[in-house]
């Protein structure tokens, strides 16, 4: 490394110029001490500033030392990144909301479907049912009670709001048919003999009134020489089941769905 000790414009080396040192030489110790203190102060400042600068550079991960234009570009980058991340957040939240509400909707739909299935199963007679209702016993000592009497009873009960019924061990459904003759009734192909027991679930009072109307079931039965006794019960069990026939031709109509 070449060096020119006498270069005049280098302040640090101006001390090397004999003129300066000669000019300083006659100074007395008081000024010397003052100069020493000044130098000490400057050196103290230098050390202080050095450490502070090093600290600030390491602390701020270089941002403190970065220039304005760099900072602006860094800020731009960060802003763009923030925008992107915010968009991501919005998208994800939307997705989450959709999933959550979809979950809710399908849960509700499932619950509704289950409820509906149970209702339909009770109506169709594929599950046992239990509830308040009546038990109607029809005795027929003279074998005079014909199928029309039983059919009438079933229809009266149904009109009075019976939700599930069974005659003997036969569940009454939409396609139940009462056939046979007096003394030997046949419901859905199953022969029944007196006394006939009809269990119906519904409002017990309404059902009883429906059966007791003048010219109604009780009247008809007593006219035929039998006796109809009605017993209101808090818990009637309709446990007979009907087989489910899969419809062979009928399909749910497209525009009927939903």
């Amino acid at each position: 490394m070449p060096e020119q000790p006498g270069q005049p414009e280098e302040p640090g080396e101006r001390a090397a110029r004999p003129a300066d040192s000669e000019a300083a030489a006659p100074q007395q110790p008081t000024s010397n001490r003052r100069a020493g203190m000044l130098i000490g102060l400057l050196c103290l400042l230098l050390g202080f500033a050095l450490v502070v600068q090093v600290r600030s550079t390491t602390d701020a991960s270089g941002l403190g030392a970065a220039r304005q234009e760099d900072l602006v570009s860094i800020l731009d980058d960060l802003s763009a990144r923030e925008d992107r991340l915010r968009q991501d957040i919005a998208t994800q939240e939307e997705l989450r909301d959709r999933l959550v509400s979809g979950d809710d909707q399908s849960d509700t739909a499932l619950a509704e479907a289950l409820l509906r299935e149970q209702q339909l199963a009770i109506l169709a007679g594929t599950v046992a049912a239990e509830g308040p209702g009546i038990e109607l016993t029809v005795s027929d000592p003279g074998a005079e009670v014909g199928p029309e009497v039983l059919l009438n009873a079933i229809q009266e009960l149904r009109a009075a709001g019976a939700e599930a019924m069974q005659v003997g061990d036969v569940r009454i459904g939409v396609s139940s048919a009462v056939t046979g003759r007096a003394g030997l009734l046949v419901i859905d192909g199953i022969e029944l003999t007196a006394p006939y027991t009809i269990r119906a679930i519904g409002d017990p009072q309404t059902l009883e009134i429906a059966l007791n109307i003048p010219g109604g079931v009780v009247n008809t039965v007593s006219r035929a020489g039998g006796e109809a006794t009605i017993e209101q019960q808090d818990a009637v069990v309709v446990s007979a089941l009907r087989p489910v026939d899969d419809p062979e031709y009928a399909r749910p109509a497209e525009d009927e769905e939903d």
């Binding site: 000790p5 080396e13 001390a15 090397a16 040192s21 000019a23 300083a24």
Partner: peptide, 14 residues
Amino acid sequence: RAWLDGLFDAKVFV
């Protein structure tokens, strides 16, 4: 450097 050269001057340094 000036000090090592024996040419150090406090005023010039300051």
